[in-house]
Amino acid sequence: MNHTVLTEHMTKKYQQRKITNRVMIGLLASASCIALIPLLSIFIYVLAQGLPGLNLNFFTQLPQPIGETGGGMANSIMGTLTLILTASLFGIVWGVGTGLFLSEYPPGRLSNVVRFSADLLSSIPSIIIGLFVYTLIVIPMRRFSLLAGAVALGIIMIPTLARSTEELLRRVPVHVREAGLALGLPRWKVILRIVLLGNSRAISTGIILAIARVSGETAPLLFTSFNNQYWQRGIDQPTSSLPVQIYTYAISPYEDWHQQAWTGALILVSLVFMMNMMTRYLLSPRRSSK
């Protein structure tokens, strides 16, 4: 008798728990969907606003003077690409190098200071980094330049890359490094050729993410690389870039410039989207099992 009462009680409890479980999963799922709404609406809106202005001229022509219609952002697209390339030249070496130092050399006071500084640097607003480069490069050179913009973007890349490289390399087991040392290879060779190259795919996803992060930066470029209505003329000359051009056109009073700004935004978003897709591809299980 007692036994059936207990069983009945437990069945009831179990039913209740099942319902609670369903409700909670439902809540979590809807919360996740709500989180997707801003992303999707930005994407759809940019697509809707940007597509009408999308044509071949946009990629091949320079901006037209005020009052004339047509023209494109060819110089800004090129400018953004050169900025990213130049920034990567030293940002990657510096960032990955710092990550190597943090993961491969014995922990000590120096590495703690470096790690803490990297974390601090990554939380500094990018406009401050722009100001820093402004006083460091723009004032002494007496002009805005591609170089200054690239240095600003490169500095922003360093902490992200340093930390992602460190995290990735920490996952490489110690015995892999020891196997290299036991073959009579000097430590630096083990680190570069076995630890780093052996994980080049994971490292490159870190690099792509860092590039994606800086490619949309606007604030530090406003007073470093500035803007330019013509083709890029040299590393010591101001250059146009997509984010700054979008900013300039978006706050202008002209209707066709607004259209151009939307199309520019579409290109920029697609660029970042493509870079993120690339990391997914590089890290896909199908490839890593090979």
Binding site: V172, P173, H175, V176, E178, A179, G180, L181, A182, L183, G184, L185, P186, I194, L197, G198, N199, S200, R201
Partner: peptide
């Protein structure tokens, strides 16, 4: 470093170099 060329070592856990081929592991 020069000593370790004369004294080879095999570890408890097999530890081939990740992402290197069989051939490249042997001649690493």
């Amino acid at each position: 470093v020069s000593i370790r060329r004369k004294v080879g070592m095999v570890f408890q856990k097999p530890n081939p170099f990740p992402s290197l081929s069989i051939f490249d592991n042997v001649v690493a």
